[in-house]
Each structure stands twice: as structure tokens, then as C-alpha cells.
Simulated assay, not measured.
Amino acid sequence: MRKKIEGVLTAIVTPFDSEGAFSDAALRRQVRRQLDAGNGIFCGGTNGEFFVLNEQEKVAVTATCVDEVAGRANVVAHIGEISTRETIRLGKQIEKLGVDAVSVITPYFVPLKQNELITHYTAVADALSVPVFLYNIPARTGNTLEPQTVLKLAQHPNIIGIKDSAGSYESLSSFLSAVKDTDDFSVLNGPDSLIHQGFVDGCSACISGLANVAPKEINAIWALFRAGDIEGSRQAQENVTSLRTELYKVAFSPAAVKKALDIMGHDVGESRYAVAFDPQQVSTIRQLVAGIAR
């Protein structure tokens, strides 16, 4: 039986110091903060700015997360690169660190057919010993995994699920429907606006970028759902949905998330795609996070 990834995993930011270098100490502080809230860790993803990290930094980020978590929660690391060869190369380094699973976005820039995506993921899963999650985020990659493609890939013994960050309920429900009769295959929800509904419909976990800002508030959606308080879980979702909507109106994530953390007193540095926040934007974010526990 495969180890099931359940609950909330925070798509944790990668902190940088004043010189723009990866800060191990700051990441450890953020990991501890998430553990205190009951959350697992998803590192090296979109909110972790994998797209501007070099290979050495990606390995260092994962090593820090695994070491700080020390078996107390799940750690999933993103390893997706633009080519199959590079993805496998990074994956072979990451799997040695003790992660519970890895996540792989579709290759990007070059439009691929579904059979080409199957070839890519099969090669990655064949090459690695660590369990693999597919990662669907078409707005960022230009390539979409179709439900029937996912169903085929679900037959691979080392592919254990999919993280869907397409951003719509239609996408999430299509994957849940496609694999409903597949044993030990998990669907992980990406959009923070669909956490509650994802759990109701059968997602085993969510990967939340907003949990960087509101770790306890996001965890409450899962904790209440698991306890059988469906209405309480729905209300907890409503409590964070407006925060997500308004925060991401100010700037893209992870820039907006990092600015929110900075305002809250967490020194995580700026995004490497830094946004020049004007005073009004800073004021807006300050108001949004005013009621959130630091």
C-alpha cells in the first residue's frame, strides 16, 4: 500500500537574504511555523520560485525542508524541468534526500501532444524510486494533461497522483471523475479557492500557497472537514477565499505572498521577480493580513 499524502501541504516560499541568496535559516523558521499549524511541506514549486532557482538551490531547499521536518509531516518536492533528461537528473538528487514524493509539472514552452506527455512522465517514473505526482498547471506551462491521459498514467506503479492547479472546479472534478475507480491514486487540489470543495469531492490533500500567509486558517478547512464538521469547513473556506482573491489582485504569487509575510514580520526577502509595490498596494496588503496570527 502506498503512503497516502493527506491534509494541507504548504507550497512554501523560498526565502532570500538581503543579497538575494537562499536563506536556510529563514526557510527553517517558515517550516517550523507550518508544522506548528499542522501542515506538511511542498517545496520548490511555483510559490517556491523553482523557475528562478538553479539546480544546487533546488537541492538545498529540499534538503533543508526534509531536515527541519524530521519525519513529523509529509514533504513533497517539485522536480519538473523543461526536459525529461533534466527532470530525471534533478529527481535522482532529490530522491536521495528522503522526501515522501516528488511532483512534476508538464514540460513547458514547447506544445506537446498527449502521447508525448505520457512518454515524458513514464520515463521519469521509470527512472526514479520515489513516488511521482503529475502536476497540471496549463496557464504557466502551455501544456494540459487531459483526464484520459491521467487515467493511463495512473496505471504506472510509481505514479501516485496528480496536483491540479488549472484553477477551475471543472478541471478538478474531471480528474476526480476519471480516476474514481483507480486504487491508491490521489488528486491534490491546487487552487486555494477550492480546498473545501476538493475535500468534499474526494481530494486527499491540498497544496496551498496562501498557507504561507495564513497557515492555521487554511489548516482549519481540513481539520474541520476531517472531524466531520462540513459546514464549519465550508465557513473556514469562506474566511480565506476573499483574502486570496484580494491579495492576488495586488500582484502575482509569490511576490504578493512574500510581501504579505514581510508586513507580518517574517523576513523571507523579495521574489526574484520582484514587484515594485507602491504605498497603496502595501496599505492594501497590510489591511488584508491585519487579522491573521503572526
Results as ranks from 00 to 15, higher is better:
I82N: 13
V250D: 00
D201Q: 10
F277A: 08
L151N: 02
V257P: 03
I118N: 04
A154S: 13
R140W: 03
V76C: 12
Q281R: 02
P157D: 07
Q30H: 14
A227K: 11
L153C: 06
M1V: 06
K92C: 09
K163R: 00
D192I: 12
K180S: 15
A274S: 10
R29H: 13
S253D: 05
N47V: 11
V66E: 12
I41C: 11
F185T: 06
P147R: 09
P131V: 13
V104C: 07
K96E: 11
P254L: 06
P279Y: 01
E238Q: 09
E49W: 02
D262N: 13
L247Y: 02
L112V: 00
F225I: 01
I207N: 00
T122G: 12
T84I: 10
A73V: 09
D184I: 07
G45W: 02
S103M: 03
I292K: 08
E231A: 14
I218M: 07
N219C: 10
S253W: 00
Y248F: 09
S208H: 09
I292P: 08
N189Y: 03
I207T: 02
A11V: 15
A256K: 07
F16Y: 15
A276K: 13
F199H: 10
P147E: 11
R32D: 14
T10N: 13
C203D: 01
D192K: 13
T141E: 06
I160C: 07
A127C: 13
V282Y: 00
L112R: 01
L151K: 13
I105H: 04
E57M: 04
A211N: 04
Q93A: 14
Q287S: 12
E95D: 12
P15M: 11
S165N: 04
V257S: 12
